[in-house]
Amino acid sequence: MSQNRKLRPDRSINGIIPFLSILFLFGLGTLIFGVPIGLKILAGGFWIFAAYSLYIFFRTGNIGHMLVGAYDVFVGAMMYVAAGYVPGRWPPSREWALAWIAGIVFFGAFLIYLAATKKIKWRGREIFELAGEAVSETGNGYTPRPRPVGKIGFNKPEILSFARFCSRHLVAVAYASPRQVSLVPVKMGDEYTFMFRGIASNPEVTWISFDFDGEVVVHISHKDYLDYAEPLAFDKLCESLGLLFIEFAELHQRGEGVRVIDRLDSLKMSYFS
């Protein structure tokens, strides 16, 4: 697969800001209130991440995020218990140490597996890269209007099944309404703020809509369009993105959903981008 990327290099640090923030609060709390309070702040931070990961699990059905949530609960609990050891009883008991090691090994193995297989990776950048691959013409032509791409012969249950597939594999987040399903590709780093937005069809978001009559419509946000290294022909880009999702839907419908994941993995993008 060609490594000539259509997207600009990903230099965003959005993804690590939450972690750095917790670390900062831990340091500040420790400095002001002492190590026990600092550790409890750290525990609280991990529990907030746990709540977020569990929300993602319930929202998307992605099992990997449930494991991440469980890991965050574990680390938070261990930090909370460790806080009790600090004033005068450090090092912690042998039981705490063994539980810590066992937990880290257990969860570590799973997390490494999930990261290596990209099962918890948001696939937004892969989607936009694949859409851009098919477009060689440049010339801008950006418009905020959505573009009808075509029609597919799928019924409502089939479209909903495809939407659930996309959600589960973090290909796109699905927003269902009585008339259609809108699929929104999410890039790594954007998921923290994105997941709490209610409505997909707004001009600041890229979406691919499948209505239950089979009509497929695409809208690319200006922000996502500017993420391409060149001003690709916008009409062709919208068409390409729509056709990509139509292809994915057809693969899924034939029971070949794994080919969709293979296509995304073939780009060999870093887990963090």
């Binding site: 801008n140 032509g141 418009t143 905020p144 209007r145 959505p146 009808p148 309404s177 008339r179 259609q180 809108s182 069809s201 809509s209 209505d211 009509e215 419509v217 809208h219």
Partner: peptide, 19 residues
Amino acid sequence: RERQNAGARFSVARSDDYI
């Protein structure tokens, strides 16, 4: 066809099939 940089803002229906 639409003019480039027309600067117009289009409001789309909830059903996403007309302006």
